[in-house]
């Protein structure tokens, strides 16, 4: 177990290093000069040079990247903005706020949106898929399968405004989506995020329904499931304890892969419902050619996905005794 963690942490560090480097160097492939944005409308060339120097942009790219990287661990002194304590991700070119504290502020919003949606689509998708597999070939299965094809094509930015119009504006069933910290008002947190969760999870629910159904049907044809039936286990036990156990493995695998898609979906969801999360930061950073913010958001997004994937790998060992963490 310990060796597994050491190996995975080293692997994760290498991945994060590569992602940040690629983002950093790609940024400079964009033909835009962030120093110009600081300089104002009338910009004498000597000012521009000074700003570039203060931003550290007159140094070679590799040196700049190195400073940025070291800054995360040791903090650094930025001429333009002053002292930046570790973990230092720099200051936004656009808003001059600290990238790290901006991300920390907004992190709970994005985590609430994504994890809440994950709970919604995992429970609904898996339950519907299991019902469809149980009722294989019968009307309920056909309804579930057809609905999931429709659901899989409902996009967030299309469904979101419609749901808000009916549920919030016309019927007044739920408040307009916004973020209320869980620690302040758990119930408020829940009702204000319910619409974003449901809307973000529609496509996922549909996909997990279809996937759960097909892996369950596959598992039910396995030899060991037949053995369980031959032992006289009731059909419910066979279904829930034997077939479901085997079906969990592909579902967990796909969930690991889907995490990145889920964060992508969160960006669209935050835009659709004007929630102030990391997704919104990311979109703004791209629009403003805001390198420190872009790097910070990318790094934090990648970090979350890498950590959650380690969690998924640990889950494997619990589900399947043939997997040993070594």
């Amino acid at each position: 177990m310990f060796r597994f963690f050491v190996r995975r942490v080293i692997g994760a560090a290498v991945i994060l290093l590569i992602i940040s480097a690629v983002t950093f160097f790609l940024f400079y492939a964009i033909p835009r000069d962030p120093a110009r944005a600081f300089c104002g409308k009338i910009c004498p060339p000597q000012n521009l040079i000074l700003i570039r120097h203060n931003l550290g942009m007159d140094e070679p790219l590799f040196v700049q990247y190195w400073h940025w990287l070291v800054g995360i661990f040791t903090g650094r002194d930025l001429v333009q903005f002053g002292q930046c304590d570790a973990p230092c991700l720099g200051y936004s070119f656009a808003t001059q706020e600290s990238v790290f504290s901006a991300i920390i502020d907004r992190f709970p919003v994005t985590i609430s949106v994504t994890m809440g949606a994950a709970v919604v689509f995992l429970s609904f998708g898996i339950i519907t898929g299991m019902i469809a597999a149980w009722q294989q070939g019968r009307p309920l299965d056909k309804i579930a399968s057809t609905t999931s094809v429709i659901g899989a094509s409902l996009q967030i930015y299309f469904v979101g405004p419609i749901v808000v119009f009916f549920v919030v504006d016309s019927m007044g069933l739920l408040p307009r989506p916004s973020y209320i910290p869980f620690t302040e008002d758990p119930l408020g947190w829940f009702v204000h995020l319910l619409i974003p969760w449901v809307v973000l999870s529609i496509i996922f629910t549909a996909n997990y329904t279809r996937m759960t159904r097909s892996v369950m049907v596959e598992q039910l044809a396995e030899d060991y499931v037949r053995t369980a039936r031959a032992k006289g286990m009731s059909s419910r036990t066979v279904f829930l304890r034997f077939a479901w156990r085997g079906a969990m493995i592909p579902i967990v695998t796909i969930f690991g892969v889907d995490l990145a898609t889920l964060f992508g979906g969160a960006i669209i969801t935050e835009q659709t419902f004007t929630l102030h999360g990391i997704g919104e930061l990311a979109v703004r950073a791209v629009q403003n050619t805001d390198l420190p913010m872009l790097l910070g958001v990318t790094l934090v997004g990648a970090f979350s996905i890498v950590v959650l994937n380690i969690v998924v790998d640990v889950l494997y060992a619990f589900i399947d005794p043939r997997v040993r963490l070594a």
């Binding site: 030899d223 060991y224 053995t227 399947d320 005794p321």
Partner: peptide, 12 residues
């Protein structure tokens, strides 16, 4: 059954 590896549950 014929193949005891696939016929026993790998999870129990």
């Amino acid at each position: 059954f014929q193949d005891p590896l696939t016929s026993l549950s790998p999870y129990h």
